[in-house]
Design a protein around this nucleic acid. Structure first.
Length: 386
DNA sequence: TTCCGGTTGGTATA
DNA sequence: TATACCAACCGGAA
């Protein structure tokens, strides 16, 4: 590859062809990871082609080709003023990072997603290759098959969905569901999304968006129960690896609107982080005003006596906010409303099931087979801008 | 209609 | 570190 430009086939953005998977599933997207895996089988091998110059763009059908958008058009101002993230772009850098990640075969073989430490920021518990996948610098098929090479060279290795290859399959899963689901990024008109009357408190939303909730762990990572479409928009703007299908998929998941429904399992903004990072290093790093708070109170500084605040040079309400909501009250309220919404969704589902028409909530009517025009437009827009 | 299994909870207990 | 329990969800298979 020394002389030519190395180019992967465009379809390598995902492991499988979305339309193919949906056809094999009777025109509907698979709604569980397990059913997706059962239909999908083994991903095809990547295809390598060498070009001396960039190949022409193929037939885009009725969609017109647009020039690459400028930084300003993407909604960013003067980027010279912004901090440059530690990610160099491009395929060469992507391949270098991938090879570095896969070099530690034992780490690859033992990778098990939920067990990784989510508070690891100096030494992340993942490959951090997602920005390269998102921007099309790294072929998911090539990555997948390189992982398989590692598996073949070791005795034992973890399996999907928790393994490293399983992560690539999750990524594909969300692409397939999005491709076959009109209005995937909305509550309204989205057949797989629970209709839940989310709180639209603007003050709470802004406090969360700006990291001012008063819960140090939350403010350091920004997770909260709020109208998921708004949280999704914030992440779309802030995440360097923001991927349309995965961002929406994960917000649907964590808001118990789709894919995952055990809404009684509610994260604690205090204990969840403590489990991985009892000293609060993650908080101390990203919220410097709390860096000298004692270990005992770092996750709930508002409970500390004034003497502790003074000693840490961080007075609650003055230097750092007190919690915007009482977690116990807010989570109980959330759970209650979720329960009501679920009951109401069940009612709707049952009443339409009785009718002989094709209006049943979970049946895809004939016109919905495959992706809607707007879904395809979004796919094109996504892949073009990425 | 029933049953099973589900990447990522919290708490109490051994 | 591992397990039972909490209360009970859903999609999909049988």
């Amino acid at each position: 590859m020394a002389s030519g430009i190395e180019v992967f086939t465009p379809v390598s953005h995902t492991l499988f062809d979305p339309a193919d998977i949906i056809n094999k599933n009777g025109g509907r997207p698979p709604l569980t990871y397990q059913s997706f895996i059962a239909i999908a089988g083994e991903p095809p091998a990547p295809i390598f082609e060498e070009y001396s110059e960039l190949p022409p763009v193929g037939d885009t059908g009725e969609y017109e080709l647009l020039p690459v958008p400028t930084v300003e058009e993407l909604g960013y101002g003067d980027i010279s003023q912004e901090e440059i993230p530690p990610f160099r772009g491009g395929e060469t850098e992507a391949l270098r990072r991938m090879k570095a990640s896969l070099q530690d075969k034992e780490w690859v073989a033992k990778f098990e997603k939920p067990k990784g430490d989510p508070s690891g920021f100096l030494k992340p518990a993942t490959t951090v290759l997602s920005p390269y996948l998102k921007f099309g610098c790294l072929s998911s098929r090539y990555f997948y098959h390189c992982i398989q090479d590692v598996y073949r060279s070791v005795r034992n290795y973890t399996k999907p969905p928790v393994s490293l290859s399983g992560q690539l399959l999750w990524r594909d899963f969300f692409y397939k569901v999005f491709f076959g689901t009109p209005n995937f990024d909305q509550i309204k008109g989205n057949k797989i999304c629970k209709q839940i009357p989310w709180s639209e408190n603007e003050e709470l939303f802004v406090a969360w968006r700006d990291g001012r909730t008063g819960y140090p762990w939350i403010d350091a990572i920004m997770i909260q129960f709020i109208h998921w479409e708004k949280g999704r928009d914030v992440f779309e703007r802030l995440l360097i690896d923001s991927d349309w299908a995965i961002n929406n998929g994960n917000w649907l998941w964590l808001s118990c609107s789709s894919f995952f429904y055990q809404y009684h399992r509610i994260y604690s903004p205090i204990t969840f982080g403590k489990k991985y990072d009892p000293n609060g290093n993650y908080i101390r790093h990203f919220i410097p005003v709390l860096k000298d708070m004692s270990r005992e109170y770092i996750y709930e500084p508002w409970t500390a006596p004034l003497s502790i605040h003074k000693k840490a040079k961080c007075i609650i309400c003055k230097d750092y906010p007190k919690p915007v909501v009482d977690h116990d009250t807010a989570s109980k309220e959330c759970r209650k409303r979720m329960g009501e919404a679920y009951a109401s969704n069940r009612l709707d589902s049952n009443s339409s099931k009785g009718k002989p028409s094709n209006l049943s909530r979970r049946k895809w009517s004939h016109g919905d087979h495959g992706a809607s025009n707007s879904s395809i437009a979004k796919l094109l827009r996504t892949s073009r801008s990425e």
